[in-house]
């Protein structure tokens, strides 16, 4: 059913810490690795021409990198993982003509029933965040499942019951939890660090939160600026003075 649930019991989602993320792409690889496993009728994430001249493939997570220049001071590089935000008012769900796209009432995860997907692509058009990619080999829409097959999986050790991207992140930049609980680790982390939603004006009410890079630690001036001030001493200083006078 592609009408959205009025409320969801939990609001499962991710906190992504842009201060800690180093852009190593481990989350991209781990996501692809876990979700590329064929599981019965649900097939993995196909690639086209992976070793050829024009490789292309289906990914549920992509890491961008941006240069941000503040009003004063030098620019900084921010690496920026982008995946499904599991929106409360997910436009990708309501546009779906077949009911393949749905949001779970129990935990708020947005999923695709691939058996019912006709591959019309309208959900990907409706998503402002580019979270959905059509699998070119299977003709069905793929998206982040929050590793629904890990987080409730009793066959996995306790510590592995979180999304593959979170489990693998070597810097701990990704956190998984329930935003419906104001005392959960992710809710508190987001509140403490000024976590924000992407493009909130589009009224999608994303669940995932991004933590802005901390102000501290930013260089106060261009790193090479002190070199301009070097005053030579000794012979070099004498030479500098003499040459300056000629």
């Amino acid at each position: 059913m592609t009408t959205l649930p009025q409320t969801t019991g939990k609001k499962l989602g991710l906190v992504i810490d842009l201060d800690t993320c180093v852009g190593c792409q481990a989350c991209v690889t781990a996501c692809k690795g876990w979700n590329d496993q064929d599981q019965g009728r649900v097939k993995g994430l196909s690639d086209q021409d992976p070793y050829g001249a024009a490789p292309s493939g289906t990914f549920l997570n992509r890491v961008h990198s941006y240069q941000v220049t503040p009003e004063t001071g030098p620019a900084q590089i921010v690496t920026f993982p982008r995946s499904c935000l599991h929106c409360e008012d997910a436009p990708c769900v309501t546009v779906c003509p077949t009911g393949a796209s749905f949001k779970r009432a129990e935990d708020g995860i947005v999923l695709v029933n691939e058996d019912a997907c006709i591959g019309c692509g309208l959900c990907a058009w409706a998503c402002p965040y580019g979270a959905r990619e059509m699998d070119a080999a299977q003709g069905v829409m793929k998206k982040c499942t929050l590793c629904v097959d890990r987080i409730y999986n009793d066959h996995l050790p306790e510590e592995d019951r979180e999304p593959a991207c979170v489990r693998t992140c070597p810097t701990g930049a990704r956190h998984f939890g329930d935003f419906a609980d104001p005392d959960s680790a992710v809710s508190r982390l987001s509140a403490d660090r000024g976590g924000y939603a992407l493009m909130p004006d589009l009224k999608t009410k994303p669940v995932n939160r991004y933590l802005p890079p901390r102000k501290k630690g930013a260089a106060q001036a261009a790193p090479l600026a002190p070199l301009l001030e070097i005053r030579a001493s000794g012979f070099a200083g004498w030479l500098d003075r003499v040459l300056g006078k000629i």
């Binding site: 990198s65 941006y66 240069q67 941000v68 921010v78 920026f80 924000y196 992407l198 991004y210 802005p212």
Partner: peptide, 19 residues
């Protein structure tokens, strides 16, 4: 800036493509 939320830090531009 609003797509990434980085407008709260300054002017955002592409550094290198994601892929």
């Amino acid at each position: 800036g609003s797509a990434t939320g980085l407008d709260r830090l300054g002017r955002a531009e592409i550094f290198e493509p994601a892929h």
